[in-house]
Design a protein around this nucleic acid. Structure first.
Lengths: 279, 279
DNA sequence: TAAAAATATATGTCAGACAATAATCAAGGC
DNA sequence: GCCTTGATTATTGTCTGACATATATTTTTA
């Protein structure tokens, strides 16, 4: 569980008391607040946010601090600010969906089934390859790390599902690290979000884990035996199981049909920007 | 005021309409400058850069502007700034290697062969899958886009290699777009860097292109025919060709850095603390 | 009516100052 | 002598206020 959520709303004009709740800077507070708002769909793409003066007044920070936060938002691709035109929210396709914060906001926002499907599909592309490379290149220490993560998962499973999830993350991170590719190593954040989302969506993650422990073991075993082909296959199998577990929740909200035998659906999904009309 | 040409009125008469490099703000200038310096290895990981006051004086910008640039650098993962400890350069493993700017700096810096190998390997994972999905999901308009990019490549090839490269980029970007996965769509920047690096490394990109036009066509044709398996295979073939074209330059660079006898090309590199004994 | 100039407004930048914090160093107790 | 504890101090974090610059909007004029 994330800690240190932003305490929004302390915009008191009061004199500077010791506010130890905000250990991070004001700029980071602005970043977090606005990022969540944007990802949650509070500002439609293309829409202009209030002026810097207005925003600063609303959030209770000065303009320099606000600008630092805005700069960070721009780097993450969520907004674009031009002189005199104000800062506009960019379309989702352009934001940095692999950024840690962006993923955290997405995970915290009302579940976006389209994105979660994309994320799972992306893992299906990346992770089997990572497992294959890990089987070829992992150092003994890294193999040990992966196996230890698996053991911890198995040990924690019945009683502490949250700890199991944590070790699951370590399991996948260990595989990425063992693949020894700096680009692949950047995707732990995506996995973290996927796991968080799985927690929030699936009614019982416990059952999912109980189903997938054998598949986790198969991956670790193949890597230990340096069987690249089998590692790739096992990881694919594991992710297919994950997709199966999540499918019911997706069907509930997802309308688009992705797996057609033929592509007569010229338009896949991508409906108009209706931000989750969930009540 | 030896450095301070920031005073007003110096360039009042200029018609600066298309000055992209100059037009951006001071903060972006700071970001670009420091980013290049760091990526080029001017600051070792863990090293502290000068204090904000000192840096601002060196770069000729005020502290707020400097801080904006530093914030952007922190978001990109290059540095980490903590109260009273200053800003320290992070190890390369932690920077955002998929960020557009970071990739541009890497491409501009002296060629990092290890990174380029990782990048090519990463493309080998991502792009075949993207081609497969594109064959399944591309709209007619997107197919047309891909084919137009191919035609432009073929038309520009003999005389204008740089235009050919541009259309090559459009070709790959079109495939990513047609794959219709927001996460996949974020990798055009990586491709751009790969192409730039290929230009800088390979003695003559023209020959590479002449070799690979047929393979490009095979990818486009498979997508048009909606043959997912063939699209994936063709893309893999295309990237294998790219790797073959770049291999001599890599070997050259590797040989230049190592004085000893050539290492067995079978094993990769990265002889980390524990050499993989089981091979 | 349409083009050109003037105005208005929001961002970009700067300067200086103060507050908060943590690294450093000095003093004291065991 | 070594460790703990407190004062010092340097550096980041933040604020106020202002001016410069560029562009959207309005007004004026041909």
């Amino acid at each position: 569980m994330q800690r240190g959520e932003t305490k929004s709303g302390e915009r008191s004009r009061a004199p500077p008391r010791r506010r130890d709740a905000e250990r991070r800077g004001k700029a980071d507070g602005v970043l977090d607040h606005l990022g969540q708002q944007i990802v949650a769909g509070r500002f439609a793409p293309g829409q202009k946010l209030p002026t810097e003066a207005e925003l600063g007044r609303q959030l209770g920070v000065s303009r320099p601090s606000l600008r630092e936060g805005l700069k960070a938002l721009a780097v993450k691709g969520l907004v674009e600010t031009r002189t005199r035109r104000g800062t506009t929210v960019r379309v989702k396709a352009r934001w940095n969906v692999l950024d840690t914060d962006v993923l955290r906001w997405i995970a915290a926002a009302p579940p976006d089934h389209e994105f979660l499907i994309d994320l799972l599909e992306f893992r299906t592309i990346i992770e089997p390859a990572a497992a294959r490379l890990a089987a070829q290149r992992a150092t003994p220490a890294q193999i040990l790390e992966i196996e230890r993560a698996y053991s911890s998962m198995a040990a924690a499973l019945p009683r502490d599902v949250e700890a199991c999830c944590r070790h699951d993350l370590a399991f996948h991170e260990g595989i990425f690290a063992a693949a020894r590719n700096v680009l692949l190593s950047r995707f732990a954040a995506a996995i973290r979000t996927a796991l968080l989302a799985a927690f929030r969506i699936s009614a019982n993650a416990r059952e999912s884990y109980e189903n997938s422990m054998a598949e986790h073991w198969a991956v670790a075993d193949a890597i230990r035996k340096r069987d690249a082909v089998e590692a790739e296959r096992a990881m694919r199998h594991l992710l297919a199981g994950t997709a199966r577990d999540l499918a019911p929740a997706f069907d509930e909200g997802a309308r688009g049909r992705r797996d057609g035998p033929r592509p007569p659906p010229l338009e896949r999904r991508r409906t108009s920007p209706t931000p989750a009309s969930k009540t």
